[in-house]
Amino acid sequence: MMKKVFSTLAVVCCMVGAFTAQQGNAATTYTYYKVQKGDSFYKIAKKYKTTISTIKTLNKRKSDQIFAGETLKVPVTVKATKTVSTAKPSITAEERKLMAQLVQAETGSSEPFAGKVEVALVILNRVKSPAFPNSIKGVIYQKTKTGYAFVPVKTGKLTRIQPTKQDYAAVDEALALFPKDRRGSLYFYNPKITKDKWILSRPVTIRIGHHVFAK
């Protein structure tokens, strides 16, 4: 349901940068893709309906070697005639509660309201990104090599969380802001706790409270 709504939004609203190449009457932009085990330039090119040479040029690569965990720029073509929708995406009551639960689990009462909103935006941005699952539930319960993408899910804490009115308000605010969100935050972490070199290398979008948000 969410994917259908998101597909009406112009990709240029959330792309992390512009790629100047033109293909006929279509404008080309790019997004980031995290390389998975078993990936190759061929597989990635096929997935994004582009060519190996285009991806290599975009990433200034000459070798055919890529490594699991690294991030590559991949082109995304959008028809120039596509219109931009600023409509607030609609979600189910179940999805709204699930988002509010994660917001509460990740921010508690120690983070400012703006930080809660940005956590909710991370979920929405992941749903829209081709590098993540295409539903709210899929994003929140995404499995990784270490268990799950979000610690509260990994520990089993999420299902016991009772979100507050502020958490629900943060989700609603994120939904209202999402169509025009240009930061495109996809990750967040506490720099005093996180030691993962990959996440620490991501481009920072904003710092709020104890969290650093990145893409």
Rank of each mutant, 00 (worst) to 15 (best):
Y32F: 14
V171R: 05
T51A: 08
S109H: 10
A80E: 15
Y42G: 07
R96L: 05
H210S: 14
L102N: 04
E70Y: 13
S110K: 12
C13I: 04
S129N: 09
R126F: 00
K3I: 02
Q22M: 13
E111N: 07
G24Y: 09
I91R: 01
A68G: 11
A100F: 00
T51G: 11
V11S: 02
K34W: 05
S7I: 02
C13A: 11
V204I: 15
A21G: 09
K46E: 11
I206L: 12
V119D: 00
G184M: 04
I52M: 11
K97N: 10
V16I: 13
I199D: 04
P89C: 09
K88F: 03
R182K: 14
L58P: 08
I199A: 06
V78Y: 03
K46L: 09
I66E: 09
T51D: 01
K43C: 03
E118G: 03
E173A: 15
L102T: 03
G17Q: 09
A114W: 01
C13D: 10
A26Q: 12
P89G: 04
R96K: 14
G17N: 09
E118A: 08
K116F: 04
V84N: 14
T144R: 03
T92D: 07
A174H: 02
K46I: 03
A149N: 02
T164W: 03
Q22T: 15
K37D: 13
A93V: 12
F41T: 06
F132Y: 13
F150K: 01
V74K: 02
A174K: 02
P179F: 00
F188E: 03
T77Q: 14
A68F: 12
G17W: 01
V35I: 15
V84C: 15
P203I: 10
H211K: 13
R126N: 02
K180E: 11
I55H: 02
K82F: 06
R61I: 06
I193S: 09
Q166M: 14
D181T: 05
E106R: 03
T31Q: 04
K195D: 12
E173R: 12
P133G: 04
T71A: 10
A105P: 01
A27D: 13
T20D: 13
K195T: 15
